[in-house]
């Protein structure tokens, strides 16, 4: 199996604080990989480094073997690395239809097109319909995003990233804050992601992690602490210690 995403000795220093320390990590193609760690372990920083929101102090990020360390977030998306956000980052005044169309057009490299109508590109309507169906958004396609129920917004959050047709998808706590009644749709959508997409799930919720991930990495204090399959991690006394030590803060 090939390597989808890889980091080599990634470091990030904020002033005196080493937020990410020598992280070398591999995401295999088609992986269902989870990244866990107690609060403040540096998960968000790592995601920001992977997606190019902040530059690393040292180290490299490779996407399918190509060095993308110096690329901006939007360049990385156009190369097939998409992400979702822990707190919804949507376009409140656009409809899901526009949002999904936008993500797809940009991925096709047609975002600069300013004389043709959005959506006139052949095949894009079908593609939007398909993504909307997959993420159960068909019935709200033409509503303003700001008025959608939270669960639908959460689905849209993942759908937008998926609409960029990524090879690697980073899911940052996809079910965060979703009420129990709407949770099922999201978990199902995540479970149904096609194998052609390699997924890295950043998550707090252990039920979700163990039901989804085949492989798990544990990040503690900015460094890789342990990695293994679900069973190994679940039974690793050191990991348990880290989490028990953190219990009560969560």
């Amino acid at each position: 199996m090939g390597v989808a995403l890889q980091t080599l000795g990634l470091n990030k220093r904020f002033g005196g604080l080493l937020a990410t320390s020598e992280v070398s990590f591999t995401l295999a193609e088609g992986a269902r990989h989870a990244l866990i760690g107690p609060n403040g372990a540096g998960k968000t920083t790592l995601v920001n480094l992977l997606t190019g929101v902040i530059p690393p102090t040292s180290g490299k990020v490779l996407l399918h073997g190509t060095d993308i360390t110096r690329l901006s977030p939007d360049q990385r998306v156009r190369r097939g690395l998409a992400r979702t956000f822990q707190i919804n980052q949507l376009f409140p005044t656009l409809t899901p239809l526009d949002t999904l169309g936008l993500a797809m057009t940009e991925r096709l490299g047609r975002g600069n097109d300013w004389l043709r109508t959005a959506g006139s590109h052949p095949g894009i309507a079908e593609a939007i319909a398909e993504v909307a169906e997959r993420f159960r958004l068909t019935d709200v396609l033409t509503e303003r995003t700001s008025v959608l129920p939270y669960g639908k917004q959460r689905l849209l959050e993942i759908a937008v990233a998926f609409a960029s047709q990524p090879q690697v998808l980073l899911l940052d706590e996809p079910a965060a804050g979703v009420p129990e009644s709407e949770r099922h749709d999201i978990l199902a959508a995540v479970a149904e992601l096609p194998r052609s997409v390699s997924v890295l799930l950043i998550e707090h919720d252990m039920d979700l992690v163990f039901s989804f991930a085949e492989r798990i990495s544990v990040l503690v204090n900015g460094a890789m602490f342990a990695e293994g399959n679900a069973e190994e991690i679940a039974n690793d006394p050191r990991v348990q210690a880290v989490y028990l030590g953190d219990a009560g803060h969560d």
């Binding site: 939007d74 409140p92 991925r107």
Partner: peptide
């Protein structure tokens, strides 16, 4: 459309490419 997206949320705009 991409302009409206930028106005609404520049962070996400970059994250959709």
């Amino acid at each position: 459309h991409s302009l409206t997206a930028i106005r609404d949320n520049p962070l996400r705009a970059a994250a959709v490419g």
